[in-house]
Computed example of a mutant assay.
Amino acid sequence: MSKNSSAKWVAEQALALLERYPLCDSCLGRCFAKLGYGHLNSERGRAIKLSLLLEIDRRVKEHELPDLGEMKEILFNMGEVGESLFSHYFGTGFQRRSCYLCNDVLPQVKEDFATKALSLLRTSPMKYVLGVRLSPRMQELETSFAVTNGLVYYESMKAEIRREVGKRLSQLGFEPEIDNPEGELVYDMDSRNVEVIRKSQKTLYLYTRLSRGVPISSWYSKGGDSLDREIGNKIIIPFTEPSDVRILEPYPLVIEDYHEERKEVMGYSLVRTSTLGKSEFNLLMENKPFSRTYRVVFYSRERKGHEIYDGIQDTMIEARNYDELMEKVKSMNVEIISVDLIRTEGKHRRIRALLTRVE
């Protein structure tokens, strides 16, 4: 075995921890949770302890550890795993110590959480995710422990509980819905109660705007009129245009807990398409048009576009966004009458088609 092998590194790190802290199998294993895929942290921790136990016994037998008192603290901190070797060398007097991090309650917490969550799901089935709420003291203790000891492969206690309870519930026919949950089952470590927190549902609408001067958000409303105030629901806007621009191509709009199939209100035409999961929502929000085509109606004594009537003209202008459009129009030295968004280009069109089947 090479001096810098992973096994030797893990053993040295674990030994350093057990010299200072009593740790149960799960809490020791969690210090190396990101090493060795497919095993429970309790399995990792017990395997590490057994490996260290063999190494300690070898050192004693090879007379590399002349002072047997040096290994007492480590055996105490190993818990039940170290008791037999302690009895072999010291007889009686083994000290049973509670885990520094979880106070030996982790197995009980997982069992309790699974039982209570199962009861709730059988009574009121729902698409769910799991959550864990640590006490402030336990949260601070765990954070300090991981940072102080430089545990780069550490997994949080909350993550371990969520994963193992979720796996057990899945085996019983209640698999968590990570992407599009209806609610979260949160286990409180202090009260040992499970709280059901309903998630808001995000629905994708496509809208066109034929009116001018009515913004989507009340933040930008001058006269008090706005779409969000009218429908009374939270609106999330992936991208839009100033309120004086009519929008003739369907634009995306995400509305929370709103279920109207079709709505005509204040010049907006809203058409419900689909409910969004987390990944779909993120995909929608991260992809904006890279090019937009506007129809600009303007007045000019010079012929600069398509003549409509006595100096009133229109033209199509392509720009990355409204600000760039204004720069281009400014250079034309004309008087703007109105602006309409006609078409956009970009990856968002394919995403829109995927989510709504609308090209």
Score class of each variant (00 low, 15 high):
335 E>R: 11
347 K>I: 04
42 S>P: 00
106 L>D: 02
64 E>N: 10
245 V>R: 01
309 Y>L: 13
69 G>L: 03
238 P>E: 08
257 D>Y: 10
171 Q>A: 13
88 H>M: 14
16 A>S: 15
160 E>P: 11
154 Y>C: 04
270 L>H: 09
248 L>Y: 07
357 R>M: 15
89 Y>R: 03
222 K>W: 14
187 Y>F: 14
11 A>I: 01
32 F>G: 01
75 L>Y: 03
243 S>Y: 09
237 I>E: 13
213 G>M: 13
268 Y>I: 12
181 P>W: 00
185 L>P: 12
214 V>C: 06
355 L>T: 08
33 A>K: 00
37 Y>Q: 11
224 G>W: 08
59 R>A: 09
22 P>T: 03
178 I>C: 06
274 S>Q: 15
121 L>K: 08
22 P>Y: 01
81 V>F: 05
173 G>Q: 06
287 N>E: 09
187 Y>Q: 07
276 L>Y: 05
137 R>I: 13
80 E>S: 13
140 E>Q: 12
281 F>I: 09
285 M>C: 14
221 S>F: 10
68 L>Q: 13
80 E>T: 08
302 E>M: 12
152 V>T: 07
265 V>Y: 02
173 G>I: 05
231 I>M: 00
302 E>L: 10
311 G>H: 02
41 N>C: 14
90 F>V: 02
82 G>S: 03
68 L>S: 12
324 E>R: 05
30 R>K: 13
71 M>E: 03
93 G>M: 06
33 A>C: 07
158 K>C: 06
23 L>P: 03
316 M>Q: 08
